[in-house]
Design a protein around this nucleic acid. Structure first.
Lengths: 200, 200
DNA sequence: CGTATTATGGCGACCGGTCTATATGCGATC
DNA sequence: GATCGCATATAGACCGGTCGCCATAATACG
């Protein structure tokens, strides 16, 4: 990581931003280079496999950043719904700042490439798994039954992705707060099911 | 509708399928023509505004088909969670048949174009609104408080979109059944809130 | 000073969407 | 009946931009 030359990181961060905003196919390599300030020839030196390698690396970088953010929010032993609420609050601010151009950092490229590039598909699956694992762990820490906690965590990730789509389409952050409210209900329900058997 | 010449519909349906599987930018007009069997010159005769017009029409067609399916499932006065469960069951079969290539018919192109083409963005917003309205109506019919029903319906649509993404990435229909289970919880909770004030 | 590694600019083949010019069918008119 | 005109329908060619690679320059090092 630290041994990565200077321009490589600039290219990757520009790629993450552009892929997130307009997708993989619509983003030209020249556009990435212009945004990153890196010289043209550097691209195939740092990424010998071309665009596909950049796409994969961009997903891994974005996945890592989200995981780090979630981990930070989970560090002080917060309840899972609180982690989600805080995260969605942050994301909402980013969306407003970008005029609703930024969505999920990986969804767009994943939908384009899921059927075409297995490496990208698996990297995305890994990302979603890692994010859900953080929520799952927090839920279990707070006493939820492990199997139920895992399922609720996975659904929560899906709900967040869906809410981000709605935000871009409606140019509003309302879907995020609505999602946060429902996530709260889901985790509370998961908790109740542990305590009193099934449903109250 | 019925006055639409024969090839126009073929082009549109091919476009819907290809846009759904690989996105807007990655799909070439020549690819659409090859898949539809329509001659090359017909494209700019039926769609004078070019690719953008095809994209918009494809979204509207896909949105209409989903709305029709949901309406059919809601016709006999089923509960909203039942509508969702039945719909997700159908979608799961389609996904298996396409080897997890088909996802949401509009999400991919919407994420690519939301920041670039307002017409497409608004068409997508309209589609989501219509789908949610069907669920909302069913919920209200079954006694849910209108405001709560609307919110739960919107969140349900978001959750479905998110679950479809997970299916493509994980090559599995499990996310759909998990989503259906949670949707059931959400609508039941919406119902309870009506009956006993807040939470049980 | 020579060699290996790092880093880069430019070139070529190719494919994209777009448009203009042409064919085909058919009813009206002389 | 022949010709004209119009709407429908189509094929081909254009221009621009794309990705990918190679020849070359700058740097580090023995």
């Amino acid at each position: 990581m630290g041994n990565a030359p200077k321009h490589r990181q600039a290219i990757l961060e520009a790629a993450v931003r552009l892929f997130r905003q307009q997708g993989y196919a619509a983003t030209g390599l020249s556009e990435i280079l212009a945004a990153s300030g890196a010289p043209k020839g550097s691209l195939y030196y740092y990424f010998p496999n071309g665009k596909a390698e950049i796409g994969l690396a961009a997903i891994e970088l974005a996945a890592e950043k989200v995981a780090a953010t979630l981990s930070a929010l989970a560090a002080n032993g917060a309840r899972p719904e609180k982690i989600v609420a805080r995260y969605l609050d942050m994301v909402g601010n980013w969306m407003r700042q970008s005029a609703y151009a930024d969505g999920s950092p990986i969804t767009t490229i994943v939908l384009e490439m899921a059927s075409r590039d297995d490496k990208i598909r698996e990297a995305a699956a890994d990302a979603f798994r890692r994010w859900a694992a953080i929520l799952e762990h927090a839920a279990v820490e707070h006493g939820c039954e492990p199997t139920q906690a895992a399922e609720t965590a996975r659904v929560t990730i899906a709900l967040i992705e869906g809410a981000l789509i709605q935000c871009r389409v409606r140019r509003s952050v309302d879907p995020l707060s609505e999602a946060a409210a429902q996530v709260k209900i889901l985790f509370r329900e998961t908790d109740l099911r542990r305590r009193c058997g099934h449903s109250c």
